[in-house]
């Protein structure tokens, strides 16, 4: 045990940097989920055939984006996206560059999840908003999101956890991060103690994220007794 602690102390700098790198990738992914994924999911909901503001062409286009991003195997997606990444951030290597494909996936995932969450809002809520003369932004901000908020938090939690997993392979484009650290030492130099410590760290992180998400969702859900 003390031997392990000594080794962890020895690698302290590298470990901290890898945690920081994972943090950056996660933060960028979540930002993309909220700033791009949620609006896309909301538009998918509103513009669907039979929805409050049917726009078939827009709906098809957004649906295509979500389906394409979600269907390409992630490693392949990372490589295929390299030209886009280079155009967006000027390089295809490093933590920032690694954030780009992660952001695309996070946005697509959360778009689908938030669409599904909004579909669970009772049709009566929409009917109420319309009868009160709500415009589209009011429908979203004063009726749909307040009623869907616990589902939106839970699905954001799921996306976050998926991104922890996706981010582990970002080593292929020099993204670094905890997963990359574990793979480098565990797979390439057979230092299993370091690898298992990192895996444990990720398990604990996932449990904390899930716990926080579940608790928040429960606290803000006032719909049932």
């Amino acid at each position: 045990m003390s031997a392990l602690l000594a080794r962890l102390a020895e690698y302290r700098g590298e470990i901290l940097i890898s945690i920081l790198e994972t943090g950056i990738m996660m933060a960028n992914s979540l930002l993309a989920a909220l700033l791009v994924g949620l609006p896309i999911g909301t538009l998918l909901y509103l513009a669907r055939p039979g929805g409050p503001y049917p726009r078939p062409a827009l709906h098809r286009a957004l649906n295509l984006y979500v389906n394409v991003v979600r269907s390409v195997p992630f490693l392949l997606f990372v490589v295929a996206l390299i030209p886009v990444t280079r155009a967006l951030v000027g390089t295809s290597f490093g933590t920032t560059a690694a954030s780009v494909p992660l952001a695309f996936v996070a946005a697509a995932l959360y778009a689908r999840f938030s669409e599904q969450t909004l579909l669970d809002v009772p049709e009566q809520t929409v009917e109420l908003a319309r009868s009160l003369g709500a415009g589209p932004l009011q429908l979203i901000g004063l009726f749909l999101y307040p009623e869907a908020r616990s589902g939106l938090v839970l699905s954001l939690t799921t996306v976050t956890i998926s991104m922890v997993s996706y981010s582990t392979i970002m080593g292929v484009v020099g993204g670094g991060g905890v997963g990359d650290f574990a793979i480098r030492y565990g797979y390439q130099t057979y230092e299993y103690d370091l690898m298992y410590t990192m895996i444990l760290l990720m398990i604990v992180a996932v449990m904390l994220i899930q716990g926080a998400g579940t608790l928040t969702a429960r606290l803000i859900d006032k719909r049932a007794r």
Binding site: T125, S131, G133, R149, K222, A224
Partner: peptide, 17 residues
């Protein structure tokens, strides 16, 4: 529409408000 009130069979209250 804002000048016309509506009352529904299922009340249609917002559960989170």
């Amino acid at each position: 529409r804002r000048g016309i009130g509506m009352v529904f069979q299922q009340f249609n209250l917002l559960g989170n408000a």
